Amino acid sequence: MSGLRLFRTDMTNSGMTEVMPRLAKVEADVQGLVEAHMDLLLGVRFLASEYGTGSVHGGRIDSLGLDENGSPVIVEFTDRR
């Protein structure tokens, strides 16, 4: 494998463990990972997943959060295979 290698810190193996890359099987895998770490990744406080936009618009927002100013942040995930 060539390219960028990724590592995470831990308390074993001299403090570093290589992260093996893998493709997400479904969009929900990526969405769950981003939502679980939204503050660290984006600086956004996670509020809701699959948030309904009401009967007028009839849609949903994949992930909803608030930034440091209290402004809403919408994250949409799309599978582009």
Rank of each mutant, 00 (worst) to 15 (best):
R81K: 10
D10T: 07
E68V: 13
A48Q: 07
D29A: 10
F7Y: 15
S63N: 07
T78H: 14
R45H: 03
A48E: 04
V30L: 15
L33F: 15
M16S: 14
G43T: 02
G15A: 12
S55N: 11
A36C: 04
V26I: 13
R60Q: 10
V30D: 02
I74K: 05
P72K: 07
T78R: 13
S14V: 03
Y51H: 08
V19P: 02
H57N: 10
D79S: 08
R8L: 12
A48T: 01
E50L: 05
T17V: 14
E68K: 06
R60G: 12
N13D: 15
A48C: 06
G70Y: 00
L42I: 01
S55V: 06
L41D: 01
G32V: 02
T9Q: 14
V30T: 11
S63H: 00
M11W: 12
R60W: 01
M38E: 00
F46K: 01
F7P: 00
S55W: 12
M16W: 04
D67K: 01
G59T: 08
L33M: 15
G54F: 01
F77G: 00
D79Y: 14
H37I: 01
H57M: 13
L33W: 15
P21L: 03
G58M: 11
V73I: 14
D39H: 05
N13F: 10
E27Y: 05
I74C: 12
L23H: 04
T78N: 10
F7M: 08
L42H: 01
L42C: 04
M1D: 07
G65W: 02
R22D: 10
G70P: 07
N69D: 09
G70C: 05
E18F: 03
H37C: 09
S63I: 01
H37V: 03
I61M: 09
D79G: 11
P21Y: 01
G52T: 07
D67M: 02
V34E: 04
Q31P: 04
R81S: 07
V34L: 07
V73N: 01
R80A: 13
G70H: 06
V34S: 04
E18Q: 11
F77M: 05
V30Y: 06
G3K: 05
G3N: 07
V34H: 09
A48I: 00
V56A: 08
T17C: 12
D29C: 13
M16F: 09
F7G: 00
E18V: 03
G59V: 07
G70L: 10
L4D: 04
M38Y: 00
G54S: 05
D10A: 02
E35F: 05
E27L: 03
G58L: 07
A48S: 09
R60T: 10
G59S: 11
E76Q: 08
V44C: 00
G43A: 04
S14D: 14
R80C: 12
F46S: 06
M11G: 06
M20N: 05
S49G: 14
G15M: 13
Q31K: 15
G65V: 00
